[in-house]
């Protein structure tokens, strides 16, 4: 009985504490200038070990979210974009850092209603080739087996763009899907000749001497869209001011990366657990830029539509519905 009552006392105490914290938090937040009734608690999803999203980690570590009066909760760390988008479908996320491809395909399929509110990064992918492959340009890849991380991904589009530029048809190569972690052993054992993949995989492949970079994505499609910051449409409608604050934190974090590349690379090493040299090499190939290139995204959406991947009517209408960049500097 004695023990039981102690436990109940503890429970009661912790309940009171939680209530007090909630009250204490909500009072200053409510008075923080935002329209009343808007939550300051945001569930944000991210991808595991993804360098493109290092701004999220930096915003957390440097207190950029707290500066905005936000209580950011980790909504989930996902191993792949589609899973993160499924979490949006299930209503488990308010906002998220995610690749353009899953965001657009899931929205196009009416599986998740999200809007792009800011960009995480551009570029940061590369075509890597296995050791011993005699190829100095894309044209030399004719007849080879090339891995992409998924059909209709940005990397898929990058490869097709590069092939077209080099004057070879995509029928002259064997394009297959291999998950990024498997690309390294597949290249090392000559199962595939080349792969198109995002950082840090190209840097890892180079560091482990499984292959070399043939072409960075910056040279295929300068400033191409990569990871985005998206918000659930319903959440955005209810809490526009909160979303505005998250965007502001993202802008602050991006500026920090731009101004402190060295420190950011070291933080990226902590964030992803990758060796310092891999993290540094990878960070060099990623461009951190918070304003998405709408025309670039539209090109990609048109590619998806042409391939029959997404069933959408007018690309223009879809784009209007997808982009919501009013909270970015110069956006509103």
């Amino acid at each position: 009985m004695v023990r039981k009552s102690t436990r109940w006392t503890k429970l009661a105490l912790s309940a009171v504490t939680v209530a007090a914290v909630v009250v204490a938090l909500s009072i200053p937040l409510g008075g923080c200038g935002g329209p009343s009734g808007q939550t300051r608690v945001v569930r944000i999803g991210t991808l595991k070990n993804d360098l493109h999203q290092v701004a999220f980690y930096i915003a957390q570590q440097k207190g950029f979210f707290e500066d905005q009066g936000l209580d950011v909760r980790e909504g989930g760390v996902f191993s792949a974009g589609p899973e993160e988008m499924s979490a949006f479908s299930a209503g488990d996320l308010d906002m998220g850092y995610v690749g353009t491809a899953p965001a657009v395909t899931f929205k196009g399929q009416n599986m998740a209603d999200v809007k792009i509110v800011a960009q995480a990064n551009t570029e940061g992918s590369a075509i890597v080739v296995r050791n011993g492959l005699e190829a100095n340009d894309v044209a030399a890849l004719k007849g080879s087996t090339i891995a992409i991380p998924g059909n209709s991904t940005v990397q898929d589009y990058l490869l097709r763009t590069a092939l077209k530029k080099a004057g070879i048809s995509d029928k002259d190569v064997n394009i297959i899907v291999v998950k990024p972690p498997e690309m390294l052993p597949a290249l090392a054992s000559s199962q595939i000749d080349a792969a198109v993949v995002w950082e840090p995989y190209p840097s890892m492949i180079v560091a482990q001497k499984a292959g070399r970079v043939l072409l960075t994505s910056a040279k295929i499609w300068p400033n191409h869209p990569c990871c985005m910051l998206v918000a659930d449409s319903t959440f955005l409608k209810k809490n526009p001011d909160t979303v505005r604050r998250v965007v502001a934190a993202q802008v602050a974090a991006t500026k920090f990366i731009q101004q402190n590349p060295q420190e950011s690379a070291d933080m990226a090493h902590l964030y992803t657990g990758q060796p310092v040299d891999v993290a540094r090499a990878a960070m060099k190939d990623i461009k951190f830029n918070y304003t998405p290139d709408e025309k670039g995204i539209q090109r990609y959406v048109e590619f998806l539509k042409a391939n029959g991947v997404v069933k959408i009517g007018s690309v223009g209408t879809f784009m209007d519905n997808l982009m919501y960049t009013v909270y970015l500097p110069g956006g509103g």
């Binding site: 599986m111 998924g150 297959i176 899907v177």
Partner: peptide
Amino acid sequence: GYGLGYMIMNAGEVA
């Protein structure tokens, strides 16, 4: 590039 399981995986990733 062919396979039912492979197709299912790829289709799932684009919803």
